[in-house]
């Protein structure tokens, strides 16, 4: 599998480590009223789609950046690669 890194170009998947579902970016507010329930959902509830899936990948043997990779779990086709920082900033996080 080849991941087309937004800064460095195409790289072999062997240079990366996968973390899991990209929803991990959306960490709940620990001060919310229902924080315990929100963290339960955040930690334990995952979609497990057969098809298009967004995942966090870490370029450990490269530029050490976190990426959001959209890929098809049935075909292994990589559809989109973004820097996780850009995704987080677009969602209103400060970095």
């Amino acid at each position: 599998m080849i991941i087309d890194h937004p800064l460095l170009g195409p790289r072999d998947a062997a240079e990366f480590v996968i973390l899991g579902d990209a929803s991990l970016i959306d960490r709940p507010d620990w001060q919310a009223e229902d924080a315990a329930q929100q963290f339960h959902d955040y930690l334990h509830l995952r979609d497990n789609p057969a098809g298009e899936h967004r995942e966090l990948w870490f370029h450990e043997q490269g530029d050490r950046s976190w990426l959001v990779v959209t890929r098809n779990t049935l075909t292994h086709e990589v559809l989109k690669v973004e820097l996780a920082r850009d995704v987080a900033v677009a969602r209103g996080r400060d970095r």
Partner: peptide, 10 residues
């Protein structure tokens, strides 16, 4: 310049 893997080594 870039970091990569050769022979399993960084």
């Amino acid at each position: 310049v870039t970091r990569t893997v050769m022979e399993h080594l960084s």
